[in-house]
Every structure is written in C-alpha cells, then in structure tokens.
Design a protein around this nucleic acid. Structure first.
Lengths: 214, 214
DNA sequence: ACCTGAACACCGTTCAAGT
DNA sequence: ACCTGAACACCGTTCAAGT
C-alpha cells in the first residue's frame, strides 16, 4: 500500500508545504478554502497541487487522516478505562468536539456518513475512505454497550454515528453571539452557553433516548 | 409592511419569472444553484436578479417563505387534534421531512438556527428572518408538551429545533444507495431504509430522550 | 519525473448605458 | 423606474512548455 517509489526530493518538499498551507487555510477559511490560494501560500503552481491531491477531498483526507486515527484510537483507551455505556458517551463527546473544532473533519464525515453533500465523494463513490477507522471505533463501542445491556439493540453503529454527526452540526460554530435581543421565545437559560457545553448536553439527551430501558 | 408602491408591470413579471426559475433550480441543483443560470432561465439580465433579490438568501427566503408558513400553521392544527406530546412529534416529523425534501429550506434554517454556515446570514445578522414562524410554532408545541408533563423542562424550544435540524441533516439526501457492499459493520437491518422512515426513527429516538420521566 | 504558469470556462457582482 | 449586458474579479482545472 505504501509508495511504490520514493518521491523525488522537491516533490516531497512541495507536498509538505501544500499540507502545511492547507491545514492553516482549512482552519481559517473552512473546508471551502480556495485551492488556488493554498497553492500560492505554499509557493507552488496550481498544477502541483492537483498532481499531489487530485480532488479537494483528497487534500482534506491528507490533512485530517492523522486526527481521525487519533480519535479512533481513543475508543480503545476509553473502552479499557470505563464501563461500556460511559465509554461510548465519552467517545461521542470527543468526536463531536473534534467535528466542531475542525470544520474540515466535519465535512469529511458528512460526505462519508451520508449526511450531506459538502465536499462530495466524487462520482466514483469508492466506499472505502478515511473515515473507516471511525466506523470501526463506533461499531466496537456500540457493540460493547449493547452487550452490557446499556444500549438499545435496535440501533446500529451507523445510526449512532449519523446522529452524533447531526447533533454536532446542530451545535453550530464556535461563533458565540446567538443573535442578541431575542424576545425570550426560547424558554430556558440560553444566554451564554459554550459550544462544548451545548454539545455535551445534546449528546446526553440523545443517549438518554438510546439507553436500554429496564 | 407591504409594497409602498405597486411595481411596474414588467418588474412584477420579471420577479415572477425569477421566482419560478429559482424554485426549479434550487430543487434540481440544491441551494447553491448558479444565480447566473437562474437569471438566464428566467430570461432576464443578471442585474435584474440582483435588483429584486440582493442576496442569495433573499432569493431563498422568497422561494420558501410560503412553505415555511404552511409548516408553521400545521402546528396549530396538530395541537388541536392531538395530545401535546404527540402533536410535537408529528410536527417535528413534518418539519424534518420538509427539510429533507427541500434543500433550500434546510439551508435557510441552518443559517437561522446557528447550525452551520451554508447560505450565510450576511454580516448584518438581522435577527428577524423568515424562520421566525417556525420558532414560534416550536415554542408553542414545546410549551404545551411541557405543560402536559410530557417533555423535560430543562430543554428550550431552540434546543428542540436545533436537534431536529441536526437529525434531519443526519438522515441525508433522498439519494438512495447507501454504499453498496459494506462488510456488515453496522450491526442491524440497514438495507433499503427509506429516508422518511429513517427520519421518523431518529425523531422517535430523540424524543425518547426528551420525554419527561415519571 | 516533476514543476510552472498561462489559458480556459465559469460564477458572482457591479454599473454605465439604454428605454 | 427598471432593464440589459458588458466588464471585472475570482476560482477550479487543464496542459504545453520547461528543467
């Protein structure tokens, strides 16, 4: 699977620069950042970007695959330290937080989980993609939790993944502000809730619905 | 609030044509449909489109405000016919279905509810927008359900709106296909589930979590 | 083998000129 | 008062020419 032939030195360096520029650009501008700009900031021609990363999605994957694998590995650690149900909740919170903090990651999972079409998968639709580790992780945690009688058996791992993805999208950006003088139509303490807090709250509510009832 | 002066006949006709073209375009191409194309299909110059609808969001609102109001009004009907909890569930299902069927509507609610930034609100951020009827509708249904002891009191109307919005996004397009040979990692009967079915299932799970516990 | 940058097609947005 | 369409800036993508 690894490179058949080592890359030429300049090619390798250009790839590195492109990735560095892309990380910054995606973080600042979001997953729709201008590819031309990324190439410029990396100091290479536009063609070079396309040679290394033929699609925007390929670039996104290259940028985020490390983080994705890191999150997936957390599943194992949490599974050892916590009871099955708690491990699942904790992991879902970490995943959701990752999606909120890294818009590119959210876009990737979006197109990989069937949630929307930002950064589409391309017509080919090769099912195997960089989010497979996440799928495996959630499958394990969900299986454990069901085995321990802490999770309903009529939901699948993909359901859980999709729901948390949706909930994370629903939490919104780290924009802060929430439309100022809102004629109190939202009943409760809405005021200055942190996005992270809100995520935890929503994941909690969701899990309440997914919990197996005695 | 209505037009101060009646529009000139040609202006009115152009507006009509633009709206008709936009309805088709948003339905076919999604909320990102080319504005230039819409103007062309309507048989008017690009400038005319901008005169009538200065932003993409303005056009989206003009296209969907009728449907939005129709959905909002359904809340009243359902509230009369059903017990509070059931009315809320039924309405959320209708809203979710609307968002799945009309991508433009989803985009509108998205930027209005703080969920994402597709079709952004513009820097002004005028809090009043076309989704207000939805907010009022959900506020009423949520209030009723809480009053009847059928819904937790620690969630606000906006929470419910955001969560259903997220869940609807999580259900995905009416694309049908779900990536073909998926090495059964998703536990359950995933096979040929309709998007509408899935939405109902997800809304049901969510409500299970939001229900007031005796 | 890889890179460059000009070239092309496309889109959003503005605005001078028309009626 | 409203419309038109050319003009501009910007972006993604390709490809002939370079090293």
């Amino acid at each position: 699977m690894a490179q058949v032939r080592p890359m030429r030195a300049d090619a390798r360096r250009n790839r590195e620069r492109l990735l560095a520029a892309a990380v910054e650009a995606f973080a600042a501008q979001g997953e729709g950042a201008s590819l031309d700009d990324i190439a410029k900031r990396a100091g290479v021609g536009a063609g070079t970007l396309y040679r290394h990363f033929p699609t925007r999605r390929a670039l996104l994957e290259a940028v985020y695959s490390d983080r994705i694998e890191a999150i997936a590995e957390r599943a194992g650690e949490l599974a050892e330290r916590l009871p099955a149900g708690a491990a699942l909740v904790a992991w879902l919170n970490e995943l959701g937080l990752g999606m909120i903090q890294m818009r590119g990651l959210r876009a990737l999972l979006s197109s990989s989980v069937g949630g929307g079409e930002e950064a589409g998968r391309g017509a080919g639709g090769a099912s195997s993609d960089c989010c497979d580790p996440l799928r495996q992780a959630v499958a394990r945690l969900v299986g454990d939790a069901q085995g321990a009688g802490e999770l309903r058996r009529d939901v699948g791992a993909m359901d859980v993944l999709r729901l948390v993805h949706g909930v994370a999208m629903a939490c919104g950006e780290a924009v802060g502000g929430e439309s100022v003088g809102d004629a109190g139509d939202a009943g409760d303490a809405e005021g200055a809730e942190d996005v992270g807090e809100r995520l935890r709250r929503y994941v909690g509510l969701l899990m309440e619905g997914l919990r197996a009832r005695g």
